[in-house]
């Protein structure tokens, strides 16, 4: 399948959700949706054959927003496997919650949990919210991956 062709196909599928579709040659397609529509968009992508999530990345832009990126691709359809579809959504900085995509993609179980643990994003509907995954049980304070959490550095500009 061709890049442009697939991009057009995805655009058609998710247009009514208010999604912005863009692409980066040769194989990355970006789909940006508002957080209310993210489950619906994920379902449509899954039905197209993007059956698993490779990575869930949460990015912190201090005092502005959080961005959550689901990098999905296909195992069952090897034509699609070449492409990565990034499903993105923005969350407001003071209210970082979004619906969990666990129902759509079971493969996000640990990845969402990790972003919850380290970045403090709440995935509503995920059964393990509030539990620790990688950090010690008694960890308190700001989630370590946020920019306001500072680690020691060496030198002046390292």
């Amino acid at each position: 399948m061709k890049f442009e062709e697939l991009k057009g196909l995805i655009e058609e599928k998710v247009r009514d959700l208010g999604a912005e579709v863009s692409g980066k040659e040769p194989n990355v397609i970006e789909v940006k949706v508002p957080r209310e529509k993210v489950v619906e968009a994920a379902m449509r992508l899954r039905d197209m054959g993007f059956d698993h999530v490779k990575a869930v990345t949460a990015v912190d832009y201090p005092n502005e927003r959080f961005e959550v990126v689901y990098v999905s691709s296909s195992y069952s359809n090897l034509d699609l496997a070449y492409f990565l579809v990034n499903l993105r959504t923005d969350l407001p900085y003071d209210d970082p919650r979004m619906p969990s995509l666990l129902e759509v993609w079971p493969s996000v179980l640990y990845q969402e949990h990790e972003e919850h643990d380290l970045m403090g994003i709440v995935f509503e509907g995920h059964p393990r919210m509030g539990e620790r995954l990688l950090l010690p049980e008694n960890y308190e304070g700001i989630p370590p991956l946020r920019k306001e959490f500072k680690v020691k550095t060496e030198g002046i500009n390292a």
């Binding site: 194989n27 059956d51 698993h52 999530v53 490779k54 195992y75 069952s76 090897l78 496997a81 070449y82 993609w105 079971p106 493969s107 996000v108």
Partner: peptide
């Protein structure tokens, strides 16, 4: 299940999914 759970590597291929990044991309 292997596909649904997003398993990677030899564990995936042992379940009959011929996915290998060396071929796919």
């Amino acid at each position: 299940d292997a596909i649904r759970l997003g398993v990677a590597g030899p564990n995936l291929r042992a379940s009959g999914v011929p996915y290998d990044v060396r071929k796919v991309e």
